[in-house]
Amino acid sequence: MDATGTAFDGFPVAALDFYDDLEMDNTKSFWTAHKDTYDTAVKAPMAALVAALEPEFGKAKLFRPYRDVRFAKDKTPYKTHQGGFVQAGQGTGWYVQVGAPGVRVGVGFYDSGSPRLAAFRAAVDDDRTGTALRKIVDRMLRQGWELGGETLKTTPRGYDADHPRIDLLRHKSMSFGKSYGFEPVIHTADLLDRVRDDWRAGRAFVEWVDAHATV
């Protein structure tokens, strides 16, 4: 339940329809005319979902629906999805979003500043901690997660191209994602258990990053 005592019952079809329409008409006039739909079909269910997960994972941040267009070529004013993020450490945590493509969950680290990146690569290079990460990555891939994040196309400076974990060393950030798309479960209360299980599956990765790649 969220702060108002509302239980999570899934995202209604109206949430996906709202974002379908917003992608076609991303204007202030559309937003103003349909803000009630956003509030009731998108924001309220997302708030209820992350509130139900809060006792185990911590308080989530619900991202604002407005895009920062100051330096963007794309001047459309509104995001075409609603995300919620629980920060578990330095630029690291769990994520869930709903948009026109449906529901997606994720876990990862997104801070690729130089000190953080150096710590991450040193931990990947180390046989003990790097092997532990390889096991986590392989397990999550077997579970159906997609590995993402910003990567280099070349070999990082200071490392050999034949390093046994060169694919991991190329990462400047690392995330895992899983999509539920339009599966019927996203419209039901059972989605809460799915997201909880997914976030639990990502806990080992979050703990590895917190222990070995945080500065």
Rank of each mutant, 00 (worst) to 15 (best):
E23S: 12
E23A: 13
E23Q: 13
E23V: 12
E23R: 15
D25H: 14
D25W: 00
D25I: 05
N26G: 02
N26Q: 11
N26H: 02
T27N: 12
K28E: 07
K28D: 08
S29W: 01
S29R: 15
F30D: 07
F30G: 07
F30I: 07
F30S: 07
F30E: 08
F30Q: 07
W31A: 14
W31S: 12
W31H: 11
W31L: 14
W31P: 11
W31G: 13
T32C: 08
T32A: 14
A33H: 09
A33D: 09
A33C: 07
A33M: 09
A33V: 04
H34P: 04
K35I: 07
K35W: 00
D36E: 15
D36Y: 06
D36V: 13
D36H: 11
D36M: 12
T37V: 14
T37A: 12
Y38P: 06
Y38S: 10
Y38G: 05
D39G: 09
D39E: 15
D39F: 01
D39H: 06
D39T: 10
T40H: 12
T40Q: 15
A41M: 05
A41G: 06
V42Q: 06
V42S: 05
K43W: 03
K43F: 01
K43C: 04
A44V: 03
A44L: 10
A44N: 01
P45C: 08
M46T: 09
M46Q: 09
M46E: 08
A47R: 05
A48R: 02
A48D: 05
A48K: 00
A48T: 04
A48M: 06
A48Y: 00
L49D: 07
L49Y: 03
L49C: 08
L49M: 10
L49F: 03
V50Q: 06
V50W: 02
V50E: 08
A51I: 11
A51H: 08
A52N: 02
L53D: 09
L53H: 02
L53N: 04
E54P: 04
E54N: 08
E54H: 06
E54L: 10
E54M: 13
P55S: 13
P55C: 13
P55F: 11
P55V: 12
E56K: 01
E56P: 01
F57M: 14
F57R: 09
G58E: 11
G58I: 02
G58Y: 00
